[in-house]
Amino acid sequence: MSALLRVLAGLIGWAAGFSILYGLHGIACARGWSAVDVGLLDLQRLVLGLAWLGGVAAIAVWTLVTWRTPPGAMPLLDRLALGSAIAGLFAMIVSGVPIVMTDPCRGDSAPGTVAGAGCCEKTQPTLSVPRAADAPGKVLPVHFPADSVDHD
């Protein structure tokens, strides 16, 4: 079983790193870290950036370990373990790119959908959900409280 887990280790490393990034992002937006300046960066980008680099470094080390491990009885499993490590490393690098490229906590939503999730303001629109069963052909309104949704 351990040999099979080793085959998946690199990708599981990515899954863990990705989960940490997403979890930290939720906490950062809820706590308003993006409004706290830390030198050239805001606290949110700093924390997420460090988590990203940490994840990349950890998987890179694992990739190196896998690369240097002497071949076992099943060469295919060794190659799969290395491939999984490289794939996990590549995925981890790509997954974190939005940290340096996107707005930290601003969210936009399409009309008629529930908005505000993950946003520091913790606001929720009230929806009067259109029900087709009410009246065929009748257009029903969707009400959003003012300022709860960004409309760009």
Binding site: H25, G26, C29, T102, R106, A110
Partner: peptide, 18 residues
């Protein structure tokens, strides 16, 4: 389209392309 912040959208968009 649910109003999730741009950065989180970026994480999942990148993974979706991968």
């Amino acid at each position: 389209a649910t109003g999730i912040p741009h950065m989180a959208l970026g994480f999942f968009s990148a993974a979706s392309a991968l």
